[in-house]
Amino acid sequence: MRIQDVAFIALFAAVTALLGLVPRIDLAFIPVPITAQSLGPMLAGSIIGARRGALSQVLFLLLVAAGLPLLAGGRGGLGVFVGPSAGFLIGFPFTALAIGLLTERFWAGLNFWKSLAIHLFGGIVVIHAFGIPVFAYVGGLSLIDATIATAVFAPGGVVKSLIAAWVTMFVKRGYPVIAPGASPAEQP
């Protein structure tokens, strides 16, 4: 792994932390405020790829576990890994991994809509696949009840997927990291 890769991993851990500082968006038609934080793993996967993206999220979780208040609302420490929403956090590296793998696979012909589909899958399906079982277990709910209870996050996931797909295409045109060979900056 090159030094650049280490720097990219650190960068996206920091990006995820920074997104926790973004004021949460309250939409009238959704009962749960949207925090921008889970945009971090999505962008990590689609901008620096599967392996580096997943590692960046592991690093982020490590910093949170160590006691830095990097989660939305200034939360952090070991306590967040035993609460009802711990599964969503554990899902961060896997979200980055899934989005990274798919983005790398479809990189050559990637357009906004394909990227949107990838982000919807990773940012909603994958993260809920980790979030729901833990939520159900800690909260003593059945999986179906837990799915219904966490469905309130889905509209936020759609908004974040739209943003992430747009940013992915912007970066693909401007400064691609996944396949730098195609970058205009690299060509003579």
Partner: peptide, 8 residues
């Protein structure tokens, strides 16, 4: 990476 992330 830990040091860089905190500085970033």
């Amino acid at each position: 990476a830990v040091g860089l992330a905190i500085r970033f």
